[in-house]
């Protein structure tokens, strides 16, 4: 007889769903917010939540960090009784974190340049300025073509 609520399933999955909530919060900030800096913060939250998902893949219940015990001379002393968590996701996420900070720094540098060029870092204001630029271009170049710049 199957249970109405499969508790083992829920306990085993609830943390995935929490990661998803975090991810979606981050994604929401990216797509919904107009402040350029805040978008980057949202991107960070989104990515860090994905990293958590990765790391949780590697976790084994009762496991420990994948570093072998060593003696004083630096030689490894293997201990078969210890269960180690899967190190591969850790490696992937180390790489991904670095990629993340690289993206963040580039994004921020772009924001600094945008502020200098547009005097604002609000998407709405920027769009307004760009629409005006487009309208001007249209006046100058578009009339004959009946098109949009």
């Amino acid at each position: 007889m199957e249970q109405l609520i499969d508790w083992a399933f829920i306990v085993g999955h609830v943390n995935y769903w929490l990661f998803i909530v975090l991810m979606m919060t981050g994604l929401y900030v990216v797509v919904a917010r107009g402040n350029l800096v805040k978008k980057i913060v949202g991107l960070n939250i989104f990515q860090v939540s994905v990293f958590m998902l990765y790391i949780s893949i590697g976790k084994i219940t009762g496991g420990t960090a994948p570093i072998f015990p060593v003696d004083l001379t630096g030689h490894i002393e293997p201990d078969p009784s210890i269960v180690y968590s899967n190190p591969l996701p850790h490696v992937l996420i180390l790489t991904a974190i670095v990629v993340g900070i690289a993206t963040t720094s580039l994004g921020l540098a772009l924001i600094v340049r945008i502020r200098e060029a547009y005097d604002t870092i609000e998407e709405e204001d920027i769009l307004k300025i760009e629409r005006e630029m487009t309208a001007e271009d249209n006046k100058e170049y578009g009339a004959a073509m009946g098109g949009r710049a």
């Binding site: 991810m23 994604l27 990216v30 350029l36 978008k39 991107l43 989104f46 990515q47 994905v50 998902l53 990765y54 991904a96 990629v99 993206t103 580039l106 994004g107 772009l110 924001i111 340049r113 945008i114 060029a117 547009y118 920027i126 760009e130 630029m133």
Partner: peptide, 24 residues
């Protein structure tokens, strides 16, 4: 043209979302 900056920024946001989806 200063719009290159916003173009690059939009591309950065979209590209990063894309890449993150990919690693998901």
């Amino acid at each position: 043209n200063k719009r290159a900056l916003t173009a690059a920024y939009d591309y950065l946001i979209m590209g990063t979302i894309g890449a993150t989806f990919f690693i998901i």
